[in-house]
Design a protein around this nucleic acid. Sequence first.
DNA 1: GCCAACGTTGGC
DNA 2: GCCAACGTTGGC
Length: 137
Amino acid sequence: MNYWLVKSEPSTYSWSDLVRERATSWDGVRNYTARNNLKQMQKGDLVLFYHSVKETAIFGLAKVTKEHYPDPTTEDDRWVSVQLEAVKALKKPVTLETIKAHANFDDMALVKYSRLSVQPVKDFEFEAVLKMGETTL
DNA sequence: GCCAACGTTGGC
DNA sequence: GCCAACGTTGGC
């Protein structure tokens, strides 16, 4: 099982949008590094859902329910999507500020590669985020 | 293949 | 709104 983090601007697609729809096709990714991460996602992998720009924090937990397939929003076969399903909201959202203040998170992709929209998350990072979010699986 | 110009993302 | 960081494009 691997862990990931996806970013979205809440004005475009928010955590509450995902909760309302229950599941969504995570499409529109147009960056090779992010695309490569999408391709590595496996069914059952857990995904942290982060809001960029406004309310910069991790709000919820989703899971991969369908592995990569051609992105339905383009004819260009270089790009792929995965299906994501909402699992649960974090009891307490974990803000970027909190993450940056956490000593062990200096290497976290969210801090180091802030523009990458689909990122791998290490086991200990994932566990620490849940703990700070006062959330259990 | 290098690099300048330009566009986009996202934190502040 | 500004700007740093980074990706992409295109001229040479």
